[in-house]
Design a protein around this nucleic acid. Structure first.
Lengths: 267, 267
DNA sequence: CGACCCCTTGAGACCTATCAACACAAGTGG
DNA sequence: CCACTTGTGTTGATAGGTCTCAAGGGGTCG
């Protein structure tokens, strides 16, 4: 699994020594076996229609191929830290990522989870406002922000897609702010599970038995609760038949409408 | 103050009958007296360096002038509602705007305040994810999103500035999510006041005696607390000398560092 | 002057956090 | 193979921060 090269990439990134030098498969920092290369538009991944470059003109795809590269990480690896100079955006090819902010006393708030097809790390002449960490073994497609920006000057389609992703992210934030500011513990957990389910559906995975890539602590730090409250709430949901827990890391939603009702207090 | 035309614009916008037809000063829907026109790059406002079009090439500014128009609203007027088709972005020329989401049972979460120079309403082929309402008498510069997008294909500077605004907004959201998910009541109020102060400073206003354009209820709905808690907290801050309240709507910050310490629990 | 709105203050209730303990699975090393 | 450790999830008892409910003060405006 190209373990050693993945380590090199991780160290490079985690140490803040990210340069603007272009890298691509074959580069010592991010070697990707030929077998790992997918059948997507750019040949870097197999995201299909989820790929950032899906549907772009061949010329554009070619340009993107030159500047992007695939990187691999293990769970708990740090991709970049809050305060690092932001030089690239990432597309998740496989696995899951969490991004979070820390307070001086150690309190943590996870501000987002990213799965296959999701894009994160937007940053324009400035530092990353958060830390990004692999939740599971991870494969990401890395695009230098500057190059992406330059490319978008001649390829409006690229620019439009970036704007689409960012507006979608902004809308997500509005929802999450509502969750954190005004929802009860039950509503938060229900909303979280529904959102996971909906996102799974949108990327073509089954909407109901959903795998929980993250642990209870991460869920708690995302919805602004404690582990205990999350655990108690999920147990309560199971007792009430709102969800099923075949294993601690798998959630089935027998009745979406019922869970939805629990997610905004209309239950 | 062009009351009747402002009413017309409001009704048009609030009723969801926003069209993509270009409008400009002189248009019956958005008449702006000549005296109201500023000395900014486009002649629509006097935002100076805060203006969206500041620093753009003359050709770009001219293009922008053709598609943008200035609108006026009174406090409590609704600019657009959650679910309305998103067709335009707005720049605040004077006054303040709040955007919020409502839950079925009436709970409200304000997700943002916007002041002079701030831009809001980003929306690409989709509906607004929130409602926008004037907090004070308001003057905004309206730019059709579609036109802005078209223009940005030939004027990369426009596109870059949009990206800048959106990444800045994303960073703000990360901070606000941390506030809502992990901060105590004291920390929330302190953070809020500091952010107001900082934003005032950045747009060239004094950082310390800051006017509170919004009431306690709005503050509470923004920081995820109740009015009572906000009021109690501010009273406590005043008692402790962290802030001064010459009037309920004016806050002086004698010691920024002390308030900052209170904003992240390092006090 | 009275109605209304906003802000403030007080007392008690409630939801969630905190602290503590236990179950269970997966390593790890003797 | 077992003892031990570690990590994760669950459950219980208690405490505490914030909400809820209630009332009063001060300003504005008709």
């Amino acid at each position: 699994m190209t373990r050693s090269s993945a380590t090199a990439a991780r160290l490079d990134s985690a140490s803040g020594l990210v340069t603007t030098r272009e890298r691509w498969p074959g580069d010592t920092l991010a070697r990707v076996d030929q077998a790992d290369r997918g059948n997507g538009p750019c040949g870097h991944c197999d995201l299909g229609t989820l790929a950032f470059c899906d549907g772009f003109a061949r010329r554009t795809v070619t340009s993107l191929m030159r500047v992007q590269c695939t990187l691999r990480f293990e769970a708990h690896d740090t991709l970049f830290r809050e305060g690092d100079t932001g030089v690239a955006v990432f597309n998740v090819v496989s696995g899951a990522v969490k991004v979070y902010k820390l307070m001086p006393d150690g309190r943590r708030q996870i501000t987002g989870f990213f799965f296959r097809g999701d894009m994160f790390g937007f940053c324009l002449d400035g530092d990353y406002a958060y830390t990004a960490e692999a939740v599971t073994p991870l494969s990401v497609c890395r695009l230098p922000m500057q190059r992406l920006h330059e490319l978008s000057e001649t390829a409006p389609e690229v620019q439009h897609r970036i704007l689409l992703r960012m507006t979608a992210k902004l809308a997500q934030f509005h929802d999450h702010v509502l969750l954190l500011g005004r929802k009860t513990a039950r509503e938060r957990v229900a909303t979280f599970l529904l959102a996971l389910s909906e996102r799974a559906r949108r990327r073509g995975d089954p909407a109901s038995p959903i795998p929980l890539a993250m642990g209870r602590v991460d869920i708690a730090d995302y919805v602004g609760l404690t582990v205990e409250t999350v655990s108690r709430t999920m147990t309560a949901f199971k007792r009430e038949g709102l969800i099923d827990l075949p294993s601690p890391n798998h959630v089935a939603i027998p009745d979406t409408q019922a869970l939805r009702a629990a997610s905004d207090g209309s239950a």
